[in-house]
Write a protein that binds this DNA or RNA. Structure first.
Length: 467
RNA sequence: GUCCCCAUCGUCUAGCCUGGUCCAGGACACCGGCCUUUCACGCCGGCGACAGGGGUUCAAAUCCCCUUGGGGACGCCA
């Protein structure tokens, strides 16, 4: 089999949504898994609703997801002449005709059909009138009146539609611009697209497009329609379901690896496997494992994957991301951009952060100047008791002379203290934690002390004692 | 309304094509336990589904039909 050519063809009327992202991923995977090509086409024929800003946003989301494309993206808005040549060919071959019906008249036809309990359609009034071109006239496709259009969908199997269900769609508007179905067919053919994998919402367009391919004498590509993504409530995904564009997931602290893994697993599977690296996906991806039923988006599972990738990712990567987060933070010390230091901090939070936002929030105490620490009042009241303070005083003194100031010796010193005073560590742990972080939950005490270093550790202990 | 598509634990899914190994497996979430200096992580265990009804068959989650439910489409949007 020849190497496949797939494409992703977003309309730049909004950000890249997770649904679109998943479609893009599948197309990318289909191409990359078979040494094919993956191309991008910006469907901006509707100039009113399209703009460059959105195009840039979509491309940057694609990059963030790690979906690289071949060639420069093409813009449909720059190819009107090309599409119109196709319309002219169809006109010449008798597959299309001019129609002078106004939108109002067509709407009346549809209303009439609806009233009879039929599918609302254009009734073909100008179909046989042989109208010449003229002001206010559109070009319509002469859809066959009989027969069925059948195709074998890569994910759904055989789909058949009676041609009578289709009406004579507009190919060229009164203003001379081409419509979606025509442009898609012209481009997919011209770009050599072999596999059209797209959202479910396009199944109904497929028979129309197949008819156009046939009328134009083009060979048919393979078609595949992936089900839509539903909200957690099984309803159509909408704003009230929270973040929906991949950009939002980026700002919310999700790793692209997690988003890709999650999305790919939504509607596609490989046995019981849940975790897939990009490289592995490229190796094992197959459209035959695509699911044909709609899937609900589950933020909890995304969170699980994200924390998994946070645990797995390497320190340089995470430290870099953390530095970026801190850069937007007020009142942080120079440590906030100190990558080697951050690389010591990150491991403490890898097992406890679900997102990078959480990690930045929890790790903040490491880059805040000692006097900027904010203490949880209730925690101070509850744990910095007179008795605890006595111990803290002595522990502070003990740590002053400790060398080396690392986890093993800190632990040993503490154990010695515990033995001497016959107290349980449980009694001291929370007071120390509150003194060091201002909070009641944090990573392990000794690992934190080691990362903080002697000076900061002592400063914070003393500060807490003075509260 | 008409047409198209879909239907396994709460959710994502395996199994379905090529019926028996499935009184249905995994994962997320949830619950319980263990670990433990807090919060987490981790480990162990538990709860939990073949939408309903008819067929076909010795045998159906798997094949067929109907019903119900859900989604999509029906634009001079894409």
């Amino acid at each position: 089999m020849a190497a496949p050519v797939t494409r992703f063809a977003p309309s730049p009327t909004g950000h890249l949504h997770i649904g679109g992202a998943r479609t893009a991923i599948f197309n990318w995977l289909l191409a990359r898994s078979q040494g094919g090509r993956f191309i991008l086409r910006i469907e901006d024929t509707d100039r009113q609703r399209s703009n460059q800003e959105m195009t840039d946003a979509i491309l940057s989301s694609m990059k963030w997801l790690g979906l690289d494309w071949d060639d420069e993206p093409i813009f449909q808005s720059e190819r009107f002449d090309f599409y119109n040549e196709h319309v002219d060919r169809l006109l010449e071959s008798g597959h299309a005709y001019y129609c002078e019906c106004t939108p109002e008249e067509v709407e009346a036809m549809r209303e009439e059909a609806r009233a009879k309990g039929l599918k609302p359609k254009y009734n073909g009034r100008c179909r046989e009138r042989n109208l010449p071109p003229g002001e206010g006239r559109v070009v319509r496709f002469k859809t066959p009146l009989t027969g069925k259009t059948v195709f074998n969908d890569m994910v759904k199997g055989t789909i058949a539609v009676d041609n009578t269900e289709l009406d004579d769609m507009i190919l060229r508007r009164t203003d001379g611009t081409p419509t979606y179905n025509l442009a898609v067919v012209a481009d997919d053919h011209a770009q050599g697209v072999t596999h059209v994998l797209r959202g479910d919402d396009h199944v109904n367009n497929t028979p129309r497009q197949i008819l156009l391919y046939q009328a134009l004498g083009f060979p048919l590509p393979e078609f595949g329609h992936v089900p839509m993504i539903l909200g957690p409530d099984k309803k159509k995904l909408s704003k009230r379901h929270g973040a929906r564009s991949v950009m939002e997931y980026e700002v919310d602290g999700y790793l692209p690896e997690a988003v890709v893994n999650y999305l790919v697993r939504l509607g596609w599977s490989h046995g019981d496997q849940e975790i897939f690296s990009r490289e592995e996906l490229v190796k094992i991806f197959s459209v035959s494992n695509l699911n044909s039923s709609a899937a609900a988006f589950d933020p909890e599972k995304l969170n699980w994957l994200n924390s998994h990738y946070i645990k797995e990712s390497d320190l340089d990567y995470l430290a870099g991301l953390l530095a970026e987060r801190f850069a937007a933070e007020e009142g942080v010390g120079p440590e906030a951009k100190d990558i080697p230091f951050l690389k010591q901090v990150v491991p403490l939070f890898q097992p406890r952060a679900k997102t990078m936002v959480e990690m930045a929030e929890q790790a903040l105490i490491f880059v805040q100047p000692d006097d900027c620490l904010s203490y949880d009042e209730k925690a101070v009241e509850k744990f910095l008791t007179p008795e605890a303070r006595e111990h803290l005083e002595r522990v502070t003194a003990l740590l002053e002379g400790l060398d080396p100031f690392d986890q093993p010796s800190l632990e040993a010193a503490m154990q010695a203290y515990l033995d001497e005073y016959e107290v349980k560590f449980k009694l001291l742990a929370q007071p120390i934690r509150v003194a060091l972080t201002g909070r009641t939950f944090s990573p392990g005490l000794f690992e934190m002390m080691q990362v903080l270093g002697r000076d900061k550790t002592l400063t914070r202990l003393r500060k807490a004692l003075s509260l």
